[in-house]
Design a protein around this nucleic acid. Sequence first.
DNA 1: CGGTCATAGGAACAACCGTACACAACGATT
DNA 2: AATCGTTGTGTACGGTTGTTCCTATGACCG
Lengths: 184, 184
Amino acid sequence: MSAPARRARRHDPGRRDRLVDTALDVVAEQGVTAATHRAIARAADVPLGSLTYHFASLTELLAAAFTRHVDTVAERFDERMRAAPDRAAALQALAEHLTDDLLGSSRDLVLAVELYVAAARDPALREVTQDWMSRSRRSLERHLDPITAREVDALVEGLVLHSALSTDPMTAAQIHSALTRLAG
Amino acid sequence: MSAPARRARRHDPGRRDRLVDTALDVVAEQGVTAATHRAIARAADVPLGSLTYHFASLTELLAAAFTRHVDTVAERFDERMRAAPDRAAALQALAEHLTDDLLGSSRDLVLAVELYVAAARDPALREVTQDWMSRSRRSLERHLDPITAREVDALVEGLVLHSALSTDPMTAAQIHSALTRLAG
DNA sequence: CGGTCATAGGAACAACCGTACACAACGATT
DNA sequence: AATCGTTGTGTACGGTTGTTCCTATGACCG
């Protein structure tokens, strides 16, 4: 009998960080309702007690995970907006951001919807969505007036949800056409 | 000691219907994650076993509830579209439908988002959202070309989600302006 | 009027959950 | 080397869940 995958991992610095990443993976792969202490612990290969040691509650862990995700996506998007020289280029970049980053990778699409789900239920997570929406709008306002930015933001949100729930998602061309029609 | 709310309700025809309505109430008031067998049974004042007798699973009950709700909202909306004489009137009616029926009544707004949530998690419920989206689009196509109808549909979905999660929702005027800008 | 069967009722079960907590093991500081 | 405080671990608890199952009831039909 060989030892069953001995885990001799006392002193694991950066475990907290790794737990946040693993939590995000579990949410992306199995949905936020399946993201339990035990599921995350299993995925990260750490004992159950480790989660409550590093995070006061499950909500706190999920909030940290979603915050990290929103940070990276928002930063990536703002980079695109900063790089765009004018309004037309910004719309083009937005369309690319949507098709590449959101609709292209099913992971980011799933995470976006799961965040909606989690936020609808948990007030603590609603802060994260608020932050996400305001950052997204601020990025758009680099090239659009505030009113248009808000409308575009809503349209984008609808496109994401639409893509997640519909069987035949819109094509990149259709998305670009819709955006220019609204804000072109 | 008075009898503790005696329940002498043997033979209760239409109970199945009443359960569907009650389930919808529970979802609207406490969210879909709180819509458990026990919560619905308590709200309908029926024993727990009655739920599994009338519905093979909780999902089946929720699907019936959401289907009923979608039916009434879709019918109400199509009525508005049928009544509109031209495209401009249709957009106006759509804006009114949004502000009155969806954003005005918090109940319908909550139910819409809860349906998104439930559908994101449960494939069986995704059929209901598909049905909802296709009916909504068909109503729009009474006055809009298919492409525009689809874009408007996505925008509407985004506006709903936006209103549900944001702290300062858009006004009726802003909504109407966004719609005419996209489809006017 | 008696039998039958769909409906009503309530208790029980097994699975799972978040969290608490007591204890073990280590690093750093004396 | 002894101590102390931080970090890691495993188990247990109390509660909730969906679902099953057995029994009781009463409306309908012959």
